[in-house]
């Protein structure tokens, strides 16, 4: 497959994530959209790593190919940690306001 399909797919997923963040008010949904965007990026990384694997350069330096996948692995690690903290915050917020509406959190204004 050509790389452009993968890039287009990743961009589409990413933009769907962005639209989700922009249009929804539920903090959990927004959070999920962020995860979706992360996954779009992960997919792109893997696709590029495999693109390089097909080239002569990739064959000469196999580390270059696997580096990208290690990166994806670390992104997942960080995402997992982020989710645990983020969800804790959302839960706390829900306990305080009985809502997950991000617009309740407009205290930044003052």
């Amino acid at each position: 497959m050509e790389i452009r399909y993968y890039i287009s797919l990743a961009v589409a997923l990413f933009c769907i994530g962005i639209i989700g963040v922009l249009t929804r008010r539920n903090a959990i949904i927004i959070f999920m959209c962020v995860e979706l965007m992360l996954n779009a990026v992960n997919l792109l990384l893997v696709a590029f790593s495999k693109m390089h694997a097909a080239t002569a350069m990739g064959k000469a330096f196999p580390g270059m190919v696997s580096d990208a996948q290690i990166f994806v692995f670390f992104i997942m690690v960080v995402a997992a940690a982020e989710v645990s903290v983020g969800l804790a915050i959302i839960v706390m917020m829900y306990r305080n306001t009985h809502s997950t509406d991000v617009n309740f959190l407009n205290r930044l204004k003052n």
């Binding site: 963040v21 991000v102 617009n103 959190l105 407009n106 930044l108 204004k109």
Partner: peptide, 10 residues
Amino acid sequence: QSGQVGTYVL
């Protein structure tokens, strides 16, 4: 500066 997170993100 509405304090609305959504606006900021937009």
